[in-house]
Simulated scan of single mutants.
Amino acid sequence: MATLSMSKKKLFIADYEIHASIKMLYPYIQTASGLAEWFADDVTINNEDKSFTFFWDSEEHKARLTAHRTNHFARFEFLPENDNDSRDPSYFELRLEFNELTQSVYLKVFDYSDFDDHKELHDLWDGLVEALRKTVGG
């Protein structure tokens, strides 16, 4: 009897200050064209089933926008690639928050995946958010 290797998924959370308005940032976290400018090599949307396809290093990963609130957040759940994914799907959520005290806008990142190198994941998100900052001038 074969044993399945079950990788435990972990939740990564980080906050990034971005010097731009929430209304300006929202399209960059929720639309295929906005995400393609900083998050992936390219992002397309299938109009039939409303799935997003993210391209990184010539690999494609399909996801659905499972929840969003205009000018607040977008959550993408990756479509299952195996039985384990079906039971416990990977997702990422990008949340825009405004701090009244400092008048600052923050991008809060939630990344739930089986990526096990926390430092490498942190470096990855640091680089992605830096690309977003350059794109929006913030």
Score class of each variant (00 low, 15 high):
Ala36Ser: 15
His72Lys: 12
Asn99Met: 06
Phe55Ala: 11
Thr102His: 14
His72Gln: 13
Phe98Ser: 12
Phe110Val: 00
Ile22Thr: 11
Phe12Glu: 08
Leu79Val: 04
Ala20Asn: 11
Gly34Phe: 03
Phe98Gly: 08
Thr3Pro: 06
Glu120Lys: 14
Val109Lys: 09
Thr3Lys: 15
Arg64His: 14
Phe12Trp: 09
Leu128Gln: 15
Ile29Tyr: 06
Ile22Val: 13
His19Met: 09
Ser86Gly: 10
Thr102Trp: 13
Met6Ala: 12
Phe76Ile: 05
Phe73Cys: 03
Phe115Leu: 09
Phe92Gly: 01
Lys134Gln: 15
Asp116Gln: 09
Asn47Ile: 04
Glu48Tyr: 13
Gly137Phe: 05
Ser21Arg: 07
Glu37Arg: 08
Asp126Cys: 11
Arg95Ala: 10
Asn47Val: 05
Tyr26Arg: 01
Gly137Gln: 07
Phe52Val: 04
Thr135Arg: 14
Leu25Ile: 01
Tyr16Gly: 05
Val109His: 07
Glu77Gly: 00
Asp117Glu: 10
Lys134His: 15
Glu37Trp: 00
Leu107Glu: 08
Phe73Ala: 02
Lys134Ala: 13
Ser104Thr: 10
Ala40Lys: 08
Ile29His: 05
Gly138Pro: 05
Leu94Lys: 01
Glu97Arg: 09
Val136Asp: 08
Phe98Pro: 08
Asn84Leu: 15
Lys108Gly: 01
Ser5Thr: 14
Phe12Thr: 10
Thr31Lys: 09
Phe52Ser: 06
His68Tyr: 03
Asp41Thr: 07
Leu79Met: 04
Glu81Pro: 00
Lys9Tyr: 02
Thr53Trp: 03
Glu59Thr: 09
Asn71Arg: 07
Thr135Phe: 04
His122Thr: 10
Tyr106Ile: 03
Leu94Tyr: 00
Arg95Gln: 15
Glu59Cys: 05
Phe73Ser: 01
Ser58Gly: 10
Asn47Leu: 09
Leu94Ser: 03
Lys108Arg: 15
Asn82Ser: 03
His72Trp: 02
Leu124His: 08
Pro89Ile: 01
Ser86His: 11
Ile29Glu: 07
Ser86Tyr: 12
Gln30Trp: 00
Gly34Trp: 02
Glu93Trp: 02
Trp125Asn: 03
Asp15Ser: 11
Asn84Ile: 14
Ile13Arg: 03
Arg87Ser: 10
Ile13Gln: 02
Asp117Ala: 08
Pro27Gly: 07
Glu120His: 12
Leu25Tyr: 00
Glu17Ser: 09
Val136Ile: 06
Asp111Met: 07
Leu35Tyr: 05
Ala67Gly: 10
Ala14Pro: 00
Trp125Val: 03
Asp117Met: 02
His118Gly: 04
Phe55Asp: 13
Phe110Ala: 12
Ile13Phe: 00
Asp116Gly: 06
Lys62Gly: 12
His61Thr: 11
Ser113Leu: 03
Ser21Ala: 06
Asp117Leu: 06
Phe12Gln: 11
Lys23Gly: 00
